[in-house]
């Protein structure tokens, strides 16, 4: 049985990775299982300098989901390179570093700093809804998204995944824009901007007022967007948004995702990623599928 997939020339042992921001740099989850079982670890976004993030409360629960407004707190690229990358190198998995920035120059500088590091892929976060500058500002305008992609690609030693925001009118247009800018792959969806109000205190549930909605509640939206994006571009698509188990992951794969990420599910089931990997194998066995690649984009109309 083959579960290997290839993203921009990098072969993953299976299509399951962890979504940025839900897994730190893996250390906390390595207390539960061997990270070597994962197709890849995608790190929490890292910027040029340390970022403090937003005030608390930073999260709130919603029906079948949650909202977060962490605000990309991160230790900065230097500490990340000296501590987090060596930690991840101990495991037999691919390393995907998520990069964030407040300006085009910052993205480029972080990408340059990572050029000599043992990192397999870069994921560029142009879709965080919780920071005032950078982030989503680049991810809602096709021209800006294309420009960031091109600038990052010019500077990057590793293949580049552009992470797209669902907070746009036409996801296919955004996917085509970053492909035109030279993206080697795209990943989606980041969180959907939401708001929750505490009617008892008549105040916002989050200090940031708005936050990114994630979890099972957003999965059908994510599957639809992954399907649309996969049909709009020829580069590989990494799908995510509310995946909790193998059947969720398989929906994304059938919709056209070459790989998938587990995000919010890590918070309520630390074993979600390894269980998803096992579940995909059982599904393949049951369905007599010898190569996972047969399933990518294999969804068809009802007979």
């Amino acid at each position: 049985m083959n579960t290997e997939v290839t993203i921009a020339g990098v072969t993953l042992k299976n299509p399951v990775m962890t979504a940025s921001g839900t897994f730190g740099s893996g250390e906390e989850y390595s207390a539960f299982y061997d990270l070597g079982c994962l197709g890849a670890v995608v790190t929490k976004g890292v910027a040029l300098t340390p970022w403090e993030g937003n005030p608390t409360p930073r999260i709130a629960e919603t029906h079948s989901g949650m909202m977060n407004a962490i605000g990309l707190q991160n230790p900065g690229i230097e500490l990340f390179c000296s501590r987090d990358i060596p930690f991840l190198k101990r495991f037999d998995t691919k390393i995907i570093v998520n990069v964030c920035g407040k300006s085009l120059e910052e993205y480029v500088e972080v990408v340059r700093r990572l050029a000599g590091e043992p990192v397999d892929l870069l994921e560029i976060n142009i879709s965080c809804p919780n920071v005032k500058v950078g982030g989503i500002a680049f991810g809602q305008d096709p021209k800006a998204a294309e420009a960031v992609t091109r600038a990052v690609k010019d500077a990057a030693r590793q293949p580049v995944i552009m992470k797209l925001s669902p907070n746009v009118t036409d996801i296919a247009e955004m996917a085509r824009a970053v492909e035109a800018g030279g993206a080697d792959a795209i990943s989606l969806i980041n969180t959907l901007t939401g708001m929750k109000i505490d009617i008892d205190r008549q105040c916002f549930a989050l200090a940031n007022r708005t936050g990114g909605v994630s979890g099972p509640a957003i999965k059908p939206i994510a599957v639809r967007m992954v399907y649309q994006a996969a049909h709009a571009v020829s580069v590989p698509v990494i799908g995510m948004g509310g995946i909790t188990c193998a059947s969720d992951a398989l929906e994304f794969i059938l919709a056209g995702a070459s790989a998938v990420s587990i995000g919010t599910a890590n918070f309520f089931n630390p074993y979600a990623a390894p269980e998803t990997i096992e579940g995909i194998r059982s599904y393949m066995e049951q369905k007599g599928v010898s190569d996972i690649r047969e399933l990518i984009g294999a969804v068809r109309d009802r007979a």
Binding site: Y29, G53, R58, I59, N68, P75, G76, F267
Partner: peptide, 24 residues
Amino acid sequence: MACGIGACLACVCRTTETDAHSNV
């Protein structure tokens, strides 16, 4: 809290000095 184990960075408090782990 979301994860309860230190991964999600939801439940932070402000410190008087820079913290060695968070670097902020």
